[in-house]
Structure formats: structure tokens, C-alpha cells
């Protein structure tokens, strides 16, 4: 009886120990791997942050890094030391710079991130708000091979769904070319690329207005004495002298800036219109399907019939009748026939 008990206890102890220490599948190993993984994620995120800073011509500090990684400054300085040992970053005074190896490593991560966002936008119905979160997880997982296959499947896209460029396989990314704020047209949307810090009075005036690189602005109105912009929901007035210190990068292709905001869903049954463009938010299969139907800029389209419940509506386009839901016709921009 007692012997049996001892055997049982022994077996139990052995299996528990095996469970913890078993190579590869044991708990200890798993824990180590998770820790290594977390470490890897932090290192890669730090590189990414450093790259973003350089791309937007701002300086990275230990504070901004620990803010980005949401860890303590002690921990992030350890991370920087580690990156320095790996030859990926270089410290000059308080400033931290990427080495060429560090830059290409960072670009690799960004490439995965943006490709994955593109994939989610084109091939799934996952909502826009979730793309970034999911891509943040995926960017640390994919191997080079998987990434290249994904890129090929997506047709080697140039830009992610937010309009940011995707680094190529050889980790190249086009330089951001900034233009003067005054070169923007009214209504244009742009990202602040650089704020010149000389003369200092102008610079401090601009920063006191709350402007900093990376912010998205929209030009509302400009004349010789005043430039009015919208920035993070606030309207700001900037005198032209100050504005020479601000360099911006316009967002969105010029082809995307469709003048007409009249949509197909607005035309009543029986009326004709000419298509002027499809919204960028029509993506993947959705967009291809519409193009296949001949819903392309320049086509005449006529609202023919409403469903008995009011949605969808049938449209006549190039001799066929196609039913479109309101959430689709909302994204097709048109010009009315009588306004042409």
C-alpha cells in the first residue's frame, strides 16, 4: 500500500518536473521564449520609433523612446545599450541615431506592418480601427520569405491604406520631400514634416502654438496677410513670415482629391449623372467588382429603380442594370448631368 503510494508520488513528481524542464516544450523553455520574444518586440519597436523620428526630421531621446515603448527610462536605456551592442544604433551626446544596419532593420519591420495593413484592408472585412493593432502584432512574427510572398500576393503595393509608402524588398523607401506651407492650396491636407529652428523667436512662437512635426493640418484659407489652418480640431492663424519655417508633405495623391462631393446615392430615380471617381475606401474585391461593371470615371449612370424597402437601388450603366447598396453608392462621386 505504502509502496504504491510512493511510486505514485514519484511518478507525479517526475511528470511535473518534466512538464517544467522538458526541452522545447517545457514550461521553463516556453517562459524563456516568451521573454525573449518580448525583448525582441521591444527592440524592434524602439528601432521603429527611431526611424520614424529620423524620417520626420525630429530628434529621438530616451524620454520619447520610453514613452513610445511604455516602459521605464531605466529599461529603455538598457534596450538602447543592447541595440548599440548589436551595432544598430549610435549615440552622439543625448541624441540617438540609427546606423545603416539599424535603418534597414527598422524598414523591414515597417514593411511588414504596412503590407499587413494593406492585406487587412484589401482581403478582409476587418474594420479600419483594428488594422494598426493587428499589424503591430504581426510585424514581429513574419519571416522574410512570408513577407515577400505576401507582397507578391498583394501585387507589390506601393502604399499602405493610410497612404504611407511601403519599403521595397531591398528596404528602400522614397525620401519625403517637404514643400513650403504657403505652397499648399486651400483645402489641401498635409503632414508637418519639419519646423526650422532658426531664427529661434519664430521657432518658439510656432511651438507655443502647439505645432510639431508629424501633425496633420488642413489649409482653410490663405491670403497675403494671413494663413488659416486647422490642426487637431483647432483653427490657427499664422502670419506668412512664420509660415516660411514650416515644411509640409501633402497627403493623398492628387488623383484622390476629387472636387465633387456629390455622390451617386443622392440622385433621384430617373436621373442621369456622370461618374467622376471612386472613394479610396472602396477596396479589394469591392472595388474590382465595381470596375468590372464599368463603373469608372467618365461613365454615364442612371438611377432606375428603388427596392421596395428603399435600399439597394438599381442603376443602369452601360446597358446593364446593377443594384448597389447605399453604403456603396455613398462612395461613388458623380457630377449631375444638368450641371455639366
Amino acid at each position: 500500500m505504502n509502496d504504491n503510494l510512493i511510486v505514485v508520488i514519484l511518478l507525479l513528481a517526475i511528470s511535473i518536473l518534466a512538464f517544467i524542464f522538458y526541452p522545447e516544450k517545457g514550461l521553463l523553455n516556453k517562459w524563456r521564449r516568451i521573454k525573449a520574444n518580448n525583448e525582441k518586440i521591444l527592440l524592434e519597436d524602439a528601432l521603429k520609433h527611431l526611424f520614424e523620428c529620423e524620417y520626420n526630421s525630429t530628434d529621438c531621446t530616451l524620454i520619447s523612446i520610453s514613452g513610445f515603448l511604455s516602459t521605464s527610462q531605466g529599461h529603455s536605456s538598457k534596450i538602447i545599450v543592447k541595440l548599440e551592442e548589436m551595432g544598430l544604433v549610435k549615440r552622439i551626446g543625448t541624441k540617438i541615431h540609427l546606423t545603416p544596419e539599424g535603418k534597414s532593420y527598422a524598414l523591414k519591420i515597417i514593411r511588414i506592418h504596412r503590407l499587413w495593413e494593406k492585406h487587412l484592408a484589401d482581403n478582409t472585412s476587418i474594420r479600419e480601427e483594428e488594422w494598426h493593432i493587428l499589424a503591430e502584432l504581426e510585424e514581429h512574427k513574419l519571416t522574410d520569405d512570408e513577407v515577400n510572398r505576401l507582397a507578391a500576393k498583394l501585387g507589390n503595393p506601393l502604399k499602405d491604406p493610410h497612404g504611407d509608402p511601403i519599403p521595397t524588398e531591398n528596404v528602400e523607401i522614397p525620401e519625403q520631400k517637404g514643400i513650403e506651407l504657403t505652397d499648399l492650396k486651400e483645402g489641401d491636407i498635409a503632414k508637418i514634416y519639419h519646423i526650422e529652428d532658426q531664427p529661434l523667436e519664430v521657432f518658439s512662437k510656432l511651438t507655443s502654438l502647439g505645432l510639431s512635426p508629424g501633425m496633420i493640418i488642413r489649409l482653410i484659407e490663405k491670403n497675403t496677410t494671413n494663413i488659416r489652418i486647422e490642426c487637431e480640431g483647432e483653427e490657427l492663424n499664422i502670419s506668412p513670415i512664420l509660415s516660411f519655417n514650416i515644411q509640409v508633405v501633402p497627403i493623398g495623391d492628387s488623383e484622390e482629391l476629387i472636387e465633387s462631393r456629390d455622390t451617386l446615392s443622392n440622385i433621384p430615380v430617373g436621373e442621369e449623372a456622370v461618374i467622376v471617381g471612386l472613394s479610396k475606401s472602396l477596396r479589394g474585391q469591392q472595388r474590382r467588382r465595381l470596375l468590372d461593371f464599368g463603373i469608372v470615371p467618365g461613365t454615364v449612370i442612371k438611377a432606375r429603380l428603388k427596392s421596395l424597402s428603399g435600399d439597394p437601388t438599381a442603376y443602369e450603366v452601360r446597358g446593364t442594370t446593377v443594384a448597389l447598396r447605399k453604403n456603396q453608392s455613398d462612395k461613388i462621386f458623380i457630377k449631375r448631368k444638368n450641371l455639366l
Partner: peptide, 14 residues
């Protein structure tokens, strides 16, 4: 099925 791709199209033939 939240993540599966979705695209509406419906033709009304004569």
C-alpha cells in the same frame, strides 16, 4: 466570419 472578405454585387438581368 467577421474578418472574411465581403463585396456586394447584384445584377438585374432583363
Amino acid at each position: 466570419l467577421k474578418g472574411e472578405a465581403s463585396a456586394f454585387s447584384l445584377e438585374l438581368p432583363p
